[in-house]
Simulated scan of single mutants.
Amino acid sequence: MGGEIRKLVFKKKKSLTIIFLIAILAITAGYFTIKNVDDKNLEEEINRPREYEVTRGNITAGTNGAGIIKFESVDHNFSQSVTIDEIYVKEGQRVSEGDKLVSLSVEEIQKKINELYGSLKRANMELEQAKKAPEYSKDAVELAELEVYRLNTEINKLYELRESPVLYAKVSGVVMSLGGTANSITSPDIPIVVIGNSDKVFAEIVVSQNDINNIQKDQIVTLEVAALQDEKIPGKVSYVNLKPNSEGNSTTYKVIVDVEGKDYGLLEGMTTNAQFILKEVKDVLILSNKAIKLKDGNQVVNVKNEDGTLREVTIQTGFSDGRNSEILSGLKEGDTVVVGG
């Protein structure tokens, strides 16, 4: 009985092994079938004819960098320390030249004028005493006169502020920061409002140490901003900062590029890519370098005829940016060049 059971178990294991081997063979055969199909498709893709048209346009070569858009800052403040009554703008708000920004408390200005008049009265008394002193001192008189002059100047400035207690925007742009709140006291050294001037836009570009020697003042630059697709924004280098910025093993330099031309609607902080133009040819015949091959030391292409046949043409190229070449002879605009097949 035990022998029969062992025979049955052996037969079952043998059957499973055969089934397993058949499955492996089927998978392997399928793999090679799929691989052969993929290899065939890849070969067909490689050998598929590709057509390149001769066009007319510009070819540009240059050095690249990346950075952010910035606005020239314009500070707005009062000449005296005074109390703010109301602020009419918020950070990030777009404003126009002449817009109302901040108003002052006329009541607090008058209080300060009254206080200064009290100080002026005392200063005048001290001046008279200095002049009449038994031991007359020219220096003491001059110091007293300076104090009287200072107080009169401050009072006159406060009178002007009392007559015109509103601060207006000097330029159009975006409010970048506020230096006070309602009822706070201003300081002549701290701007109450800082506006980023939308008419004075520039880009701060980071350039690698390998490329910085290719950059110079007044160099033409093309800027591209992700928010403005397909827009080529002209610019010009206004400043090259040769102080290095080192992070890890990387050394970079900052270059300032002034944005030229119309208002593109740029905002501070937008990221931008920059191409510093080293050389550019305009309104020339252009062909992809992929369409050009060398034969016996000559540059040749296969031009497609009207009937679909091909003819080999020797050409002469000029300037190239590494992707496209200027065609000096052998082709005309609209010609179709075929590669492969």
Results as ranks from 00 to 15, higher is better:
2 G>V: 09
17 T>N: 13
19 I>Q: 12
24 I>W: 09
25 L>F: 15
26 A>R: 05
28 T>P: 05
29 A>K: 06
30 G>R: 07
30 G>W: 09
37 V>L: 15
46 I>D: 11
46 I>K: 15
47 N>S: 15
49 P>A: 13
50 R>S: 03
52 Y>R: 02
53 E>P: 02
58 N>I: 08
62 G>F: 00
63 T>P: 04
72 E>V: 14
75 D>K: 14
75 D>F: 14
77 N>G: 06
79 S>T: 15
82 V>K: 05
84 I>R: 04
88 Y>F: 14
89 V>R: 01
92 G>Q: 04
93 Q>R: 02
99 D>M: 02
102 V>D: 03
103 S>D: 02
113 I>W: 06
123 A>R: 01
123 A>F: 02
126 E>P: 08
127 L>Q: 06
128 E>V: 13
129 Q>Y: 14
136 Y>Q: 11
137 S>W: 03
141 V>R: 02
150 R>P: 07
165 P>E: 06
169 A>C: 08
169 A>Y: 08
170 K>P: 04
171 V>L: 01
175 V>W: 05
175 V>C: 07
176 M>A: 14
184 S>F: 02
192 I>M: 01
193 V>W: 01
204 E>L: 12
213 N>V: 04
214 N>H: 12
214 N>S: 15
219 Q>G: 08
232 K>Q: 10
235 G>F: 06
239 Y>C: 07
239 Y>P: 09
240 V>C: 08
241 N>Y: 10
242 L>D: 13
247 E>Q: 08
247 E>W: 03
252 T>F: 02
256 I>K: 14
258 D>A: 14
262 K>C: 07
263 D>T: 04
267 L>P: 01
269 G>L: 12
272 T>C: 13
272 T>N: 00
274 A>R: 04
276 F>K: 09
277 I>Y: 07
281 V>E: 02
282 K>S: 13
286 I>F: 03
287 L>I: 05
287 L>M: 01
293 K>Q: 15
296 D>M: 11
308 G>N: 11
308 G>M: 11
309 T>I: 09
313 V>F: 08
315 I>F: 03
319 F>C: 09
319 F>L: 11
322 G>V: 07
325 S>G: 05
325 S>P: 08
326 E>G: 04
327 I>R: 00
330 G>I: 01
331 L>N: 03
333 E>I: 09
333 E>D: 11
334 G>D: 10
335 D>Y: 07
338 V>H: 04
340 G>L: 09
